[in-house]
Amino acid sequence: MKENHCDKNKELLKVNGLRTHFFTDAGEIKAVNGVSFSVRNGETLGIVGESGCGKSVTVRSIMRLVKTPPAKIMGGEILFENHDLLKISEKEMQDIRGKRISMIFQEPMTALNPVFTVGYQIAEVILRHNKKLSRAQANEQALEMLRMVEIPDPERRIHNYPHQFSGGMRQRVVIAIALACSPKLLIADEPTTALDVTIQAQILDLMRKLKEEQGTSILMITHDLGIVAEMCDRVAVMYGGEIVEQGNVKEIYKSPLHPYTRGLLRSLPRIDQETERLYTIEGAVPNPKDLPKGCKFSTRCAQCAEKCKESPPEYKEMTSGHFVACHLANEVS
């Protein structure tokens, strides 16, 4: 097996101009409209955005899990270890899913099958990608995985069904399944949104630890800017199916260039600060069927100028590695 030995700057995943559209009775919805980003070896990239901004569809497109119809990947390329995932056959994709790229879903109950034991479900993934192993060997490995995700009393728990686990424990099982074949890339779609704060802290801790141990790259989808600050190296902010800003987490939190990023950061109530009155981004997310012609954020932007309404802004690099799509980025900063 050829391994790219953790070259930190090497791009593991490179998404170029990805476009995923939905064809519905009500018309064409451009859920993902020209999205480009990359995940390097061993890094954690966060994608943040509000509901309906296209973040989940983006990662589902990478996994080729969008249902066709109604969705269709209209264009772009998804380069993973130098292969375009959009050009390979479904059978080849099945060999990649769960082995090279795996995914953790938001809702741990629906991600697990209620009629099989958790041990069986972990072993299933191991057997699928390792045909030479016997069931007993796979079970042995499954037990090892449960130990790794720190489930207490794994020898007994391996024979339990998902409903016998609490939410946090189920999410640990989902992580065990995802990491069973030591993937290079782990996609986590809101992995802690359904969990309580103290359980969220446990799961985030576990993910950080496993990432360090296994050198897995993580693509993390979330709406929580606090989680991004704690978990991610770089972040991409999505709005209306596009990435509006991307760059190093520290830099973006310190000097956000896009008014949407700035607004999001300022509108959060903070546990470590006093705020008299919260900043608000006026209005609501535009209807995806009827997005504004120019900048997608123009309808809610406090600084909106004439040109913002007319033409979409160019997505450009302002400083090294810090990208932004805003007509006013120069003037404001």
């Binding site: 969220q200 989680i227 600050a229 704690e230 939190y253 310190k254 546990i271 470590d272």
Partner: peptide, 9 residues
């Protein structure tokens, strides 16, 4: 346990 939206903290 509450995440703080500030990477420098």
């Amino acid at each position: 346990a509450a995440p703080i939206p500030d990477p420098t903290v």
